[in-house]
């Protein structure tokens, strides 16, 4: 009986981990030739350190203003809390170093922006319909 419960728990854990991994996807323009990015690449893109794709095109990151998704995206990839991320960009704004990524309130707006912007990159939930954009694989950083 104990063994059966353990197996059930294990299966549920695997399913939830799988769903967790799928709850957020990073999207780019369909013509973007980049197949994958590391988490470090994403961090550098969203912190104004990496500004060019490998083909030389300008990277245009955008944010989705949905608290739970934003928090998850920033924690996993940018390694900052929403407050730290916001402060980083305010620091850029008020010292003349840069302006933050454009923010959208809906997933449809993020997808529409990335679909019409060749260098665009954004994130949406795994349930969103990715019409006109392509999801990109995010790999763990190599040690």
């Amino acid at each position: 009986m104990k063994q059966k419960s353990f197996v059930t728990c294990w299966i549920l854990l695997m399913i939830s981990a799988h769903l967790g991994a799928q709850d957020l996807v990073v999207i780019v323009h369909p013509e973007n030739e980049t197949r994958f990015l590391s988490k470090k690449d994403l961090q550098h893109i969203y912190l104004n350190k990496k500004v060019r794709w490998n083909d030389g095109g300008r990277i245009v990151p955008v944010m989705l203003q949905r608290a739970e998704l934003q928090e998850s995206f920033l924690a996993r990839n940018v390694r900052k809390t929403p407050r730290q991320f916001s402060t980083f960009w305010k620091r850029q704004i008020f010292t003349g170093k840069g302006v933050p990524p454009t923010s959208f309130t809906s997933e449809q707006e993020v997808i529409a922006f990335v679909a019409r912007t060749p260098g665009g990159i954004g994130f949406v939930s795994g349930k969103a319909s990715l019409k006109g954009v392509r999801s990109i694989e995010i790999q763990e950083d190599s040690s």
């Binding site: 500004v51 300008r58 245009v60 704004i93 008020f94 003349g96 840069g98 302006v99 260098g119």
Partner: peptide, 18 residues
Amino acid sequence: VGLNISKSLRDDLRLGMQ
């Protein structure tokens, strides 16, 4: 008190002042 404005002229060129 501070006030700044900035404008991107191209994707790689920006002007600003505070």
